[in-house]
Design a protein around this nucleic acid. Structure first.
Length: 643
DNA sequence: CGATTTGTTGGAGCA
DNA sequence: TTGCTCCAACAAATC
């Protein structure tokens, strides 16, 4: 029997330490091993990925490629610029591959992709080996041991986990790697269809992801930001396994911190240094193994003389939440990431609801502007000019650095949804998806559902105040002053509500509180301005609470027939909060296939709020392409059957 | 079964 | 400064 020729396909496991799948590849004792990456058009065009996360990904790839070369000077991470669905049929033949090995991925799209790749491999007689490695427990196993239901609470995860058994100890990094074989590519490159391109706005140069199979120099190198045409990153946080392991070492060196960590007690206002580990982006890209993290912490906790913290607030508890969200997503699939058709997400008639493609039941990536005020609130929230310094500082930090503290995420998420703007959580989740370095669909979606009280959490009367909450840690407002420098001279008394500062003080502190923070609102060239608050918070909080109480009493979930067909409106008063008016509008914000508007920027503000949906359709745009956020790649990659 | 407790991370007022 | 109750009140888990 000939020796195996193996392709190891890296995805969200960009590391050498503790990779069960890589270990399985090496256990084959292959004649040659090709470590590869393929550019998935779902990531390039359909996921929302800002410059900071692109940079972090390229960092991870560079670091991994260098680490591979250190183990074998003939090897590296081979980046091949084509969609896996079209590349593999050709590549597996060209390189005479016998085995394809990769880490299991239970994200909704990834499952579909991997299914089709496995089918391809079968057709060309290549054996596929898949190993779980991304989470503490295999999400499918968690679900199985949770009575085949999505894991919706930490206790469910703990119960299911205890039935699965012990969490595996990490596997050491390999000490050597086999040579790759001949890397000739004697086939044509097939380019995916770039349209629609959700990431067009992330680019300033020419998009060159798919210019040549082996890259511009033909050496399979990690692409540069300029090759991909991307804007420059602004984050100080960098990727790669080397950095991740250094960070882990540094954190573990502080045994008190590691053993007594309690998430709710860490300060979201800390910035030098941050109060939490900042390892989440590494967990996302796999530059740090969650089992490595788990056992390093657990061993310190076991040996700790004092009183150690416990899950769920402890460091290991944080990993259990991650597993919980993966378990929920693994069970619910595409519907997990949206309200529509989601059996476990409560239906609330938020403003700015997602449009839904009637043929797929998936949200399209664009939304209905049912209310011009809500649209203004959303845009000001996104741009960090709400007039609430705590919220604005967080949103500016998020955009610039790609990371904010977990409690800061709570504050801005509550503010956008149930505790302020009454805007659909899906709007906020999309912004986080674009800007977060650590964006993980399962965790992001789960946390937005949590904070909006649509799943996982229900106590909507527990509402974060943008004024009182940050004072728990930062009375002086040092955090605000760091990210909203306009206010750097403001006294502690007014730092969280600067609109209350006397005009004379505002003048003395060199910043007037006026306008809405848009580029046009200045002080006529005389000093700085910071916007007035966009609403009275106590009033808005009351409106939201009333809306939530009402929606909760109606008790609809995303898969209720009344939600699916639009008759939910009959259950809400015409003057209830949200797009509730009338009894015969379109179902939710459902749109016909052809009516899906492509671009996020397409939202014309309606002349009068609530008027728009009366007519229903906004004019037919025949032949418009489909643009599902979480959707499949229909029409993007065409799989050619091999003879 | 109904009652009680618990749930990672609220706020205001008070001792 | 910390810890307590109440606010107006959800729902799953547990007793």
């Amino acid at each position: 029997m000939p020796k195996p020729r193996v392709v190891y396909w890296f995805r969200t496991d960009l590391r050498l330490h503790d990779s069960p799948a890589l270990q399985a590849a090496l256990d084959l004792k292959p004649e040659c091993l090709y470590p590869i990456w393929t550019w998935d058009p779902h990531y390039v065009y359909r996921a929302r990925v800002g410059p900071n996360r692109w940079q972090f990904l390229l960092d991870c790839q560079n670091d991994l490629s260098n680490a591979i070369t250190k183990l074998n000077s003939k090897s590296k991470l081979f980046l091949i610029r084509e969609a896996p669905q079209t590349l593999f049929p050709k590549l597996l033949k060209a390189w005479k591959i016998t085995h394809l090995v990769f880490e299991k991925d239970t994200d909704a799209y990834a499952r579909e992709r991997d299914e089709s790749v496995m089918e391809i491999a079968k057709e060309v007689g290549v054996e596929v080996i898949v190993k779980m490695g991304r989470t503490l427990y295999d999400p499918d196993e968690l679900v199985k041991h949770n009575h085949n239901k999505p894991t919706m609470s930490i206790s469910q995860v703990q119960n299911a986990g205890s039935k699965i058994g012990d969490i595996a100890r990490p596997i050491p990094a390999p000490k050597s790697l086999p040579n790759p074989g001949d890397t000739k590519l004697d086939f044509e490159q097939e380019k995916p269809v770039a349209d629609p391109d959700f990431n067009a706005k992330q680019r300033e140069g020419k998009e060159g992801t798919y210019n040549k199979l082996s890259g511009p120099k033909g050496d399979f190198a990690v692409p540069t930001i300029s090759e991909l045409g991307l804007k420059k990153a602004t984050t100080p946080h960098r990727g790669g396994e080397t950095i991740a392991l250094e960070m882990l070492d540094e954190i573990m060196a502080n045994e008190d911190y590691t053993a007594t960590f309690e998430k709710p007690k860490t300060a979201p206002t800390a910035f030098e240094p941050q109060a939490t580990t900042l390892l989440s982006p590494h967990l996302h890209f796999g530059s740090l193994s969650c089992r490595e993290f788990y056992w390093r912490v657990q061993d310190i906790v076991t040996a700790y003389k004092g009183k150690a913290s416990q899950p769920p607030t402890s460091l290991t508890g944080q990993l259990l939440f991650r597993d919980m969200y993966f378990g929920a997503q693994a069970s619910l699939g595409y519907s997990f990431a949206q309200t529509y058709n989601n059996s476990h997400c409560r239906f609330i008639p938020w403003h700015l609801p997602s449009k839904v493609d009637t043929t797929s039941s998936l949200i399209t990536g664009s939304y209905l502007v049912d209310d011009s005020k809500a649209e203004e609130y959303f845009i000001r929230w996104r741009e960090g000019r709400t007039g609430f310094p705590w919220i604005d500082a967080l949103m500016r930090q998020l955009k610039a650095e790609g990371w904010i503290h977990h409690l800061g995420r709570h504050a801005v998420a509550c503010f956008l949804t149930r505790g302020g703007c009454y805007v659909d959580w899906e709007r906020g989740a999309e912004v986080f998806e674009e800007w977060l370095l650590d964006h993980e669909t399962a965790c992001n979606v789960g946390n937005w559902q949590w904070l909006s009280c649509t799943a996982f959490f229900t106590q909507f009367y527990r509402c974060y105040s943008p004024i009182a909450f940050p004072q728990k840690w930062d009375k002086e407002g040092a955090f605000v002053k760091r990210y909203v420098p306009e206010l750097e001279k403001f006294s502690a008394k007014y730092i969280y509500e600067p609109w209350k500062a006397p005009i004379a003080d505002q003048r003395g502190w060199g910043c007037m509180i006026k306008g809405d923070g848009s580029p046009g609102s200045t002080n006529g060239g005389k000093g700085k301005v910071y916007p007035k608050p966009m609403f009275d918070f106590p009033t808005q909080r009351e409106i939201c609470l009333r809306g939530m109480k009402n929606a909760y009493s109606i008790r609809l979930y995303g898969n209720d027939p009344k939600v699916l067909d639009g008759s939910w409106r009959k259950l809400f008063d015409d003057n209830a909060e949200g797009p509730t008016e009338g009894n015969d509008g379109l179902p939710g914000a459902m749109v016909d296939h052809e009516d899906a508007t492509g671009e996020e920027e397409n939202h014309e503000v309606p002349p009068s709020p609530k008027a728009q949906k009366k007519g229903g359709k906004e004019g037919s745009k025949k032949g418009h392409k489909r643009d599902a956020t979480q959707g499949t790649l229909d029409g993007m990659v065409t799989r050619k059957r091999q003879k």
